[in-house]
Amino acid sequence: MTHTPRGARQRLLALSSRQHIEARWGALGAWLGDFPRHRCVRGPETGMAMLKGRTGGTGNAFHLGEMTLTRASVALDDGTVGHGWVRGRDHRHAELIALADAVAQHAEWQEALETRLLAPLAAELAERQRRDAATAAATRVDFFTLVRGE
């Protein structure tokens, strides 16, 4: 089984809803049994992040605006530290991402995390993106140019 790279895992967890993560996290903890205890070492705390954009996608960078961001860091009982960031003000969501990051650093929990948490969340996210793309496609307008006779 291949393991999801850390950045991709963090992105997937941040884009998934807290409710979906919590539901699967509870089932994962019950399945593993000896799940690690943790404590928060930083946060969760909410702040702002500056967003940058580019003119035309490739031009000069400019400040687009600010976004609310929540971050958290947790430490497992063995000292392993995990970090989590999520847009918005959901402290529990950021804490769950940090906890998953810490747990993923342990080889004995990686496969369970992949199969019981990340794979179902990835499938849900892909389905949501497919639905959003279908909704957007339904509003697509194709323009064409009429050429006058010469």
Rank of each mutant, 00 (worst) to 15 (best):
G59A: 10
A30E: 15
R24H: 09
R42A: 13
V86L: 08
K52R: 15
L69D: 01
R37E: 13
A72P: 08
G56K: 05
A14Q: 09
S73L: 08
S73H: 11
E95R: 04
I21Y: 02
R71W: 02
D90E: 12
H38K: 05
A94S: 10
A75R: 10
L28F: 15
V86E: 08
A94G: 11
Q10A: 15
R71P: 01
W31T: 14
L69G: 01
G65L: 07
D78V: 07
T58G: 08
V74F: 03
G53F: 08
V41D: 06
A14R: 01
P36D: 03
S16E: 02
T55H: 13
W31Q: 15
Q19D: 14
R11W: 07
G56F: 04
H63D: 13
R42S: 13
L28S: 09
A49W: 00
T68N: 04
L51A: 14
G82Q: 06
G47P: 06
C40Y: 06
M50D: 01
G84F: 03
T70C: 15
T55P: 00
A27E: 15
F62M: 07
R39S: 10
R18K: 13
R18I: 00
K52C: 05
R54Y: 06
P36N: 03
E22M: 12
Q10G: 00
L76W: 02
R42I: 00
E66T: 14
R39G: 00
R37H: 11
A49Q: 12
K52W: 11
L96D: 01
G79Y: 06
G53S: 13
T58E: 08
H93G: 05
G79K: 08
T80P: 04
Q19L: 06
S17C: 03
L96T: 02
S16N: 03
H20Y: 00
H38W: 15
